[in-house]
Amino acid sequence: MHPFSYTRVTDTRQALTAGRDGGRYIAGGTTLVDLMRETVERPRTLVDISALPLREITVAKRGGLRIGALVRMADVAAHRGVRALYPVISEALELSASAQLRNMATIGGNIMQRTRCTYFRDVNADCNKREPGSGCAALHGVNRTHAILGTSDDCVATHPSDVAVAFAALEATVVLLGPDGERTVPFASFLLKPGSTPNREQALRRGELITAVEIPAFPRPLKSGYLKVRDRQSYEFALTSAAVALHIRGGVIRQAKVAAGGVGTIPWKLTAVERELIGKRPSEALWTKAAERAADGARPLQHNRFKVELLKRTVERQLRIVGGGK
């Protein structure tokens, strides 16, 4: 670990000042501290924002949801409103990490977490995300767990978050506070595909602070859920995952919100799958047909070809679990 200074702020104004001066925000620290110990992250200044008043979950009258950036993963997962309105969010959280980590880690930190790519986390390996221009060791290396969607020749690392997949599916927005005031960014454009600048991961401006994630209201009933496929039953990142939310009325799918995890450089919104579903009647055949589009555009690597088929099957299964059928 490299030496660093540490300050604790108690209001957002102090936080923004410290952030503008180059401080790194830290809350639960479950990702950042790990990476500092591996010297992957070497911040000079840590700004502890844990004491900021960003711990509220509010349910809007029309059914939307606002989750403060500092609400712990465990608290979001257990929240009655979240469980009632968006089971996909609580399921995604409960399938993440371990109980201990969920008690520490915050929602803002969760969507900011960095990739599990083993080359990124190994300071002796080439990694454009960590060391721009050094190359991507994963591209032709050991890449079983890497991305098949949204990749570039410079980076094939997956985004590791589960709940971000649910947020992507539900078309959440991220509320940001910066020196120039507040702005909201659609989730789809908050996390960035690597392109030729894999070191840039979020559409954050210098010193900006995530204050909340907002989930829009949907017509009710909205059935939703999250499926995570992984080698072991607990405490592992997804090989593939699917977040599905469906609004079915009169026997017809009126709204379909689908995203996949473990396969993309960012949580992967499956708009082609959604399009296949809208206006159709739920059926086994429909789930299969729609899921066929889940891997559109996939560019598999040497060790992760299986993810193409596994992704389709994961989406198909979760459509059936949420939408019904055999």
Binding site: T118, D122, A125, V142, Q233, S234, E236
Partner: peptide
């Protein structure tokens, strides 16, 4: 798991080298 290009072990930690958890 070894990356045979240089002999580096790529899963040298408890998150990536999997052993059974209680749930398993």
């Amino acid at each position: 798991v070894t990356d045979h290009r240089d002999g580096r072990i790529t899963n040298a930690n408890f998150a990536d080298y999997l052993v059974p958890t209680h749930a398993d």
